[in-house]
Simulated scan of single mutants.
Amino acid sequence: MSEQQVPSVGRVVHYVSHGTPVREDGTQAYTEQCRAAIITGAPDCDAHMECASLAVLNPGGLFFDQHVPHNETSQQRGGTWHWPERVG
């Protein structure tokens, strides 16, 4: 997308879940997954990081978090959010 998007209340974004800890055999019960989330607040975090407060929509229920860092890199880490990828 050529223009910079600005986080604002009500916008839909993707949250990357943390997943469960890695077991001794190298497996995980749940891996990092993209989940739908709604921005519930767009606080001013600091000059070096864009963040948002989110309501995350998981298959098993809702999760709420504040000051979640924004990450648009190809290395999307658990506990961050990014804009949904364009489809079609």
Rank of each mutant, 00 (worst) to 15 (best):
Ala52Lys: 03
Arg77Tyr: 10
Tyr15Val: 05
Gly79Tyr: 03
Gln28Ile: 00
Pro59Ser: 06
Ala36Cys: 14
His18Ser: 12
Leu54Arg: 04
Gly61Leu: 06
Gly19Ala: 04
Tyr15Gln: 07
Thr20Phe: 12
Ser74Arg: 07
Arg11Thr: 09
Cys45Ile: 06
Ile38Ala: 02
Arg35Gly: 01
His82Gly: 00
His48Cys: 11
Asn58Asp: 13
Gly61Lys: 01
His82Met: 04
Leu54Ala: 04
Asp44Cys: 03
Pro21His: 10
Pro84Glu: 04
Glu3Gly: 09
Gly10Thr: 05
Val6His: 02
Asn58Glu: 14
Ser8Tyr: 08
Ile38Gly: 07
Leu57Cys: 08
Gly61Trp: 05
Thr31Cys: 14
Val56Arg: 01
Pro7Phe: 05
Arg86Val: 13
Met49Ala: 12
Gly79Glu: 05
Thr20Pro: 02
Gln33Cys: 07
Gly88Arg: 08
His82Ala: 09
Ala42Thr: 07
Asp46Lys: 01
Gly78Asn: 05
Glu50Ala: 12
Cys45Phe: 09
Arg35Tyr: 11
Glu32Lys: 14
Ala36Leu: 15
Pro43Trp: 02
Val9Ile: 09
Val22Leu: 07
Val9Asn: 06
Thr40Trp: 03
Thr80His: 12
Tyr30Asp: 10
Pro7Trp: 01
Pro69Leu: 03
Gly26Pro: 13
Arg35Gln: 11
Val6Gly: 03
Met1Glu: 11
Pro84Ile: 02
Tyr15Cys: 03
Ser53Asn: 13
Gly88Val: 08
Thr73Ser: 13
Gly19Arg: 11
Ala36Val: 15
Leu62Ile: 10
Leu62Ala: 06
Val22Asp: 04
Cys51Val: 05
Glu85Cys: 10
His18Lys: 13
Val9Gly: 07
Gln4Thr: 13
Gly61Phe: 00
Phe64Val: 06
Ser2Lys: 12
Ala37Trp: 10
His14Met: 14
His70Pro: 00
Gln75Val: 11
Met49Gln: 15
Ser53Lys: 04
Val68Ile: 10
Gln66Tyr: 08
Pro84Met: 02
Gly61Thr: 05
Ala36Glu: 15
Asn71Ile: 01
Asp44Tyr: 09
Ala37Asn: 06
His82Thr: 06
Val87Pro: 00
Gly88Thr: 05
Pro7Met: 10
Gln33Ala: 09
Leu57Gly: 03
Ala36Ile: 15
Ala55Gln: 12
Trp81Leu: 01
Gln4Ile: 14
Met49Phe: 09
Thr31Gln: 15
Ala47Arg: 07
Pro59Lys: 06
Ala42Tyr: 00
Thr73Glu: 05
Gly60Pro: 06
Asp44Gly: 02
Ile39Thr: 04
Phe64Ala: 03
Gln5Lys: 12
Pro7Ile: 09
Leu57His: 09
His67Ala: 13
Gln76His: 11
Val16Gly: 02
Val13Leu: 08
Thr27Gly: 11
Thr31Phe: 13
Thr31Arg: 15
Ser74His: 04
Thr31Pro: 07
Ser8Ala: 13
Ile38Trp: 11
Asn71Tyr: 00
Ala29Met: 13
Tyr15Phe: 12
Arg23Thr: 10
His14Val: 15
Gln4Lys: 15
Ala42Met: 02
Pro7Asp: 04
Thr80Asp: 02
Gly19Asp: 08
His82Tyr: 08
Ile38Cys: 03
Ala52Val: 06
